[in-house]
Amino acid sequence: MLKTACLHTEILNVLSKCGHGDKVLIADGNYPIDSNTSKYVEKVYLNLTHGIPLVTDVLKVINEMIKIEKLEVMVPGDNTPPPIFNDFNEIVSSVDHLEKLGRFEFYEACKEENIKLAIATGEQRIYANILLTVGVVQK
């Protein structure tokens, strides 16, 4: 039996192949994951039902598994940060700020070929999408 934060075989497989600079998208239940990601991205549909799992649940597990170098988020048109951004900052305390992208800028960023994994969640909070950049682990 594995003693790791994640037991999902597809997620484990893709994360094991990620290198420095590769990216992981954790998407809320409203994100159009099929039309706004690259054809090369591995898609994992964890969205069991409304609210299960939450983006923050998935982020906590991924944060235990990889070094996160950068966080990118989608901001509303009025630039008001949604409350979930505080949760993101608390979970990934190793990154000092969130890089804020407009909606269409975020969509374009998620279509790049270095996005290796896109995880769909049941998250219902709006603007709860986050793009993680894999960093380097130093021992």
Rank of each mutant, 00 (worst) to 15 (best):
I62C: 02
V73G: 03
C18M: 04
T37H: 01
R103A: 05
G122E: 07
S93Y: 04
T133D: 11
V61G: 08
L59G: 00
G29D: 03
L7I: 09
N13C: 15
K70L: 05
L117T: 03
E112Q: 14
H20A: 15
L54W: 04
D87W: 05
C110T: 15
P76V: 10
H20N: 15
V75T: 12
S16H: 01
L48Q: 15
G19L: 02
F88C: 01
L71N: 00
L2G: 10
K116R: 10
E64S: 08
F85K: 05
D22N: 08
C18S: 00
L25N: 05
G122I: 04
V75D: 03
I66R: 02
I11L: 06
H8G: 03
G51F: 06
S38V: 06
Q138R: 12
V14F: 04
D22C: 02
K17S: 14
A109L: 10
S93G: 10
V14G: 05
M1S: 13
V44E: 05
I52C: 12
L48P: 09
S93A: 12
D87S: 07
P76T: 00
E90C: 02
F88A: 00
T121M: 04
K70A: 07
F85L: 00
L15V: 08
T133A: 11
I84K: 05
P53G: 06
D87K: 10
K111H: 11
T121E: 03
